[in-house]
Simulated scan of single mutants.
Amino acid sequence: MKNIISFAALALNLAAGTALAQDKVTFATNWKAQAAHGGFYQAVADGTYKKFGLDVTLLQGGPQVNNRPLLPAGRIDFLMTGNLLHSFDNVKNGVPTVVVAAMFQKDPQALIAHPGQGYESFEKLKTAPLALIAKDGQFSWWQWLKVTHGFKDEVLKPYNYNLGPFLANPKAIQQGYSVAEPIYVENQGKFKPVVHLLADHGFSTYSTVIEARTDTVKDKPQLVQRFVDASILGWVNYLYGDRKAANAMMIKDNPEMTEAEIEASVALMKQQGIVDSGEALRNGVGAMSTERIQDFYAQMVKAGLYKAGEVDLSKVATLQFVNKKLGMDVKAKLGGR
């Protein structure tokens, strides 16, 4: 089925005087190309960015690549970051960036476990004798798990992104990206792991957020709007349309990926409602709300990551570019549910 561009949105931009003169834009991701970046690759591959007057270069991240400093330094125009913790830190530290859209309604951070060990219940995970959690997780969302759900530091061991220790111990639990590690576990361990999304248990952050510099939002709002709109449509078309060209682009950028892995990841994104759930069902992909940002910050204050009032939440995100129901007509035409 062909992908569909929302020409009503395009006409709106044209009516507003937006010249489609192919503005050059560089967008950096936070890891190597994968299905979780699919909507952005889709918008390049199917010409959506081009139709919105944008010549977009995608700059992938990786284990030895940190693209975050490039945005405030003016070397890139937009940045994909993991979740709102990064954005809270930026505001706290006076870094002049702001979130302009949230492509994932749910953070894919998850805890995974072996089946048949009693861990089908989320509450039982805190009884596991071994929890393999990377250092950055230990100092962020693990603190929330301790305060909110009663997890204990005594069981912690570092997760070094090697599945061996987890596969060898059926009583172990470990962190995982819900649309990636479960696929690797099934491939290597030959079993389907139990997967518990933190988002389904109160970890209310948005994820795969798009950040821009505050001066870009102020001085070039039409450019930001076009990039956000095209990215939203890219995600709708990636999930519900023909994504073969986008997958091919990602495999070219990241040859470690396979078509089968990408498609398995897309299936998990749909099943788990990573992109298209919650506020996105009412206001379109990319949707955000002030109330949810406030809720997540309050949780992080309770977890001890921040002090009350330490972060000016009015500077974390702007809602001016989202919540316009963009792409919902496209989704309907493509048969999305």
Rank of each mutant, 00 (worst) to 15 (best):
Q188H: 04
F40V: 15
A110P: 00
V311R: 05
V98L: 02
A287N: 02
Q320T: 09
G327S: 07
D55E: 14
G286K: 03
L268Y: 06
A332C: 04
W31T: 14
V301W: 12
A246K: 03
Q174D: 05
F321M: 03
S204F: 06
K252H: 13
L71C: 05
A101K: 00
F227D: 01
G61V: 03
K302P: 06
I274T: 01
D253Y: 04
E154L: 10
V56G: 02
L14K: 12
L233T: 02
D215C: 03
K302H: 14
K157D: 06
K333G: 03
G39I: 04
P63Y: 02
Q34D: 15
E263T: 12
P63D: 09
A110R: 01
V330T: 13
V95S: 08
L85T: 13
A199K: 01
V275F: 11
L156G: 09
T81G: 00
F296Q: 14
V209Q: 10
V217F: 05
F7R: 11
Y161N: 06
I173S: 07
A287E: 06
Q42P: 06
A113Q: 07
L313E: 05
V100H: 00
N169L: 09
F296R: 02
L58R: 06
Q64I: 06
G304W: 13
A267M: 10
